[in-house]
Design a protein around this nucleic acid. Structure first.
Lengths: 239, 239
DNA sequence: GCACCGGCTTGACCTGGATCAGGGCGCGGC
DNA sequence: GCCGCGCCCTGATCCAGGTCAAGCCGGTGC
């Protein structure tokens, strides 16, 4: 895992959430070089390969460059509980800071490339670059809110609609189509994440199709009536 | 709201989560004075009074000194959703950082006294006191995990047991009895927080009582069989 | 081609917890 | 004392979504 191109600003990983920060706030040549030292492009992680496992020592957070990651824990009866999906541009590992061990497993759903950041070095740099500290606080705080979203007592329709709209927005904010999306995860994973049975996801997707809200073909989904879906999910997503 | 006793180290608010940090890490007279400037003791907030409301501009986080705070949001149909309870020593307002507005309401359940910290000033100070930055990162990261706890698909028994054990642990870590506890919130609030109906909470509490797991008298609870309760809640709390 | 396998769908049935309805009890006001 | 009001408890009924069982469909190996 070589350190990345240290002289060439053009090649500085453009999908990393932090590069923009570093460039935007108090950016200068010296600091850019400091950033380079603590960024490491890793991968590819093929489908099914773990990026980290519960209990592993925490040392770095990572931005997804390409592919999709699923995080999950297993309960004492061995059942899996999906905690989240991470798309390109999103940051993984933040919940590990407090206990200095990863509290969950992270596995690649599709071939994944990562931008890995040493967290201790990052924190040190953050004391010198206020914008970076801000960005870290922001990312952490944002995740607190996100985690609570699915905790509410919403019915299955609301959950699934919110899931689709959420994905759509996340893809859209990264420049992908907000209406045609490819689901990188299985129905079972979606169901598990939403705390529903796979059969329920299947049935509701069927109903959404009958009501012309979506078009579904295997893992390709087209959102036909975003307004209605947004409406269904407004209690979950809080606009 | 006067700034607090600036000269006297003995009087420095002992229940504030951050004072300890400041004292532990790179503590010196100058920095202690800096801490004082950004700490403000506020209150009392009588039962039912709001500490902040959804949409209020975010400027400070606060440690609870005494009393209990409930946070909640209201959905578009006006129904309340309880997000959490904050006991003495716990920090409130962290989820507001990312959007610079409070994303929820916070109301006093019993007369509350607060230690209020200007967050911008706090962040600035954190660039000078690495231990403080660490502590902030830790607090934020911790909350990410906490929020996810109740999101799992647990049954009503597991939820209620986890609630009781969780409270017990939190009180214990602040020096209160881990077995005899006073519930500052109503059954309705507990039910709402756990995403159950109040009737369900009542029935399960009844059953726990019949099974000699707890003794219940109005809002006073004694945990009679902690081992069994811990066991019931282990999937939720993950030990 | 065919057989197998894993992911998905569909139907029939069951159940945990919500909902509805009613009643008790402690506390404050008068 | 008595009344009224919140809060809490309890029983009867209902239903969203889970579970069980079976079939489908596309992809892969032979």
């Amino acid at each position: 895992m070589p350190l990345i191109d240290d002289g060439n600003e053009q090649n500085f990983c453009s999908s990393c959430a932090f590069s923009a920060v570093c460039l935007a706030s108090g950016y200068d040549k010296t600091r850019l070089r400091e950033m380079h030292v603590l960024v490491e492009h890793t991968g590819p992680y093929e489908e099914g390969r773990h990026v980290f496992r519960e209990g592993d020592e925490f040392n770095s957070i990572a931005a997804v460059r390409s592919g999709t990651i699923k995080t999950y824990v297993t309960d004492l009866e061995g059942r899996e509980q999906v905690l989240g999906f991470y798309l390109p541009g999103e940051v993984i590992g933040l919940s590990a800071i407090s206990r200095s061990r990863y509290p969950c497993n992270a596995v690649a759903l599709e071939t994944v490339q990562l931008c890995r950041f040493s967290f201790p070095k990052m924190a040190t740099l953050a004391t010198k670059v206020p914008g970076l500290q801000q960005e870290l606080f922001r990312l952490l705080s944002e995740d607190i809110g996100k985690a609570g979203l699915l905790a509410g007592d919403f019915d299955a329709d609301e959950r699934l609609a919110a899931f689709l709209v959420g994905l759509s927005r996340r893809y859209a904010s990264r420049g992908f189509s907000p209406t045609r999306l490819h689901l990188p995860m299985s129905r079972t994973d979606i169901a598990n994440y939403l705390r529903l049975a796979p059969e329920t996801v299947s049935r509701i997707l069927r109903r959404f199709r009958d009501e012309r809200l979506v078009r579904v073909e295997r893992r390709e989904i087209e959102l036909l009536d975003r307004a209605r879906l947004e409406d269904l999910s407004r209690n979950v997503l809080r606009t």
